[in-house]
Amino acid sequence: MAPPPQAGASPYAPIAAAQPPPPNPYASAPPPPAAAVPPPPRAQVPPPPQGARPGLAQSQAAAPPPPAASKYPAGDRSHIPPNAMPIYEILNPKIQFLEPRAPEKFKKQTQRSASSLNEIFDRLNNETFKPETVSKLVGLAQAVEARRYDVATKIHSDLLVNNNDEYSSLQIGVKYLIQMCSATWRAEETPSQSQIL
């Protein structure tokens, strides 16, 4: 026989929710959360300078410095050092003689030769040639004076190969000069012309 309901308890009262069991003091503790690994640092790229255009930095860095200004004006011959003076004293009279006498079909070659020689004289006056180049040019001029045009041609070729940085822009004019002097010497000339060439 069931016991009678307790006084005051309503059969329609809601049933209390079940409470969670108390924690077990002997249970192992859960593992700590894994430590967060920071991302690797990003390389700092310096910003380009203001006004710089992309792709020009390397080309600007590799650009050669501008040529130094000449100490003396073009056409001045008063500062050619004594060791280089034979170049001027021998070759200048040659081109002065040839230029007004060249046939019309050789005018351009003669003008090119005069331009190259004037550049050589200007550079000698400002002492911008290396000593080795000056020494070879002296030998070339002396060979022209002695009518050893084969020797002058060999020195010309040596300058073109071994002193190209200083001689390349001058070599055509010097080559024309050697050829014109050789042709003039071989041709039948008057005595006055033979004395010069």
Rank of each mutant, 00 (worst) to 15 (best):
P48E: 13
A69G: 01
Y72V: 02
P40N: 06
S59W: 06
P49L: 13
P46W: 03
G51E: 07
A63C: 00
G55L: 01
P67A: 11
A57H: 06
P41H: 14
P49G: 13
P67I: 08
R53V: 12
P67G: 05
Q44I: 07
Q50K: 10
A62P: 01
Q50V: 08
A57Y: 04
P64W: 11
A68H: 02
Q50S: 05
A36H: 06
Q50I: 08
P38L: 11
A43V: 12
P41E: 15
P46N: 12
P48C: 03
A68M: 10
R53Q: 10
Y72T: 02
P54W: 07
A69L: 02
P66H: 05
P40M: 09
Q60S: 02
R42C: 05
P65M: 13
P47K: 15
A43E: 14
P48D: 10
P65N: 14
P64H: 10
A36M: 04
P49C: 09
A36I: 03
P47D: 12
P64N: 05
A52L: 02
A57D: 09
S59A: 12
Y72E: 03
P48A: 07
S59N: 04
P67L: 06
P47E: 15
A62K: 15
Q58P: 00
Q50P: 02
G51R: 05
P38R: 06
A52G: 02
A69S: 03
P38W: 01
R42A: 12
P40T: 06
A61V: 00
P65W: 14
P39V: 02
A43W: 12
Q44R: 02
S70E: 04
Q60N: 09
Q60Y: 11
A36L: 12
Q58Y: 13
L56C: 07
P48V: 03
V45I: 14
Y72R: 00
S59C: 03
A69Y: 01
S70T: 06
A57N: 01
Y72S: 00
A36D: 06
S59P: 00
K71S: 06
P64M: 07
A62Q: 15
P41Y: 15
A36E: 08
V37A: 11
A61G: 00
L56V: 02
A63V: 00
P67S: 04
P46C: 03
S70Y: 12
K71R: 11
R42F: 09
R53E: 11
Q60V: 03
A57K: 03
P67V: 10
A43R: 13
A57T: 13
K71I: 06
P46E: 09
L56F: 12
P66A: 11
A57V: 13
A69H: 06
Q44P: 00
V45Y: 09
P49T: 10
A35V: 07
Y72M: 05
R53T: 12
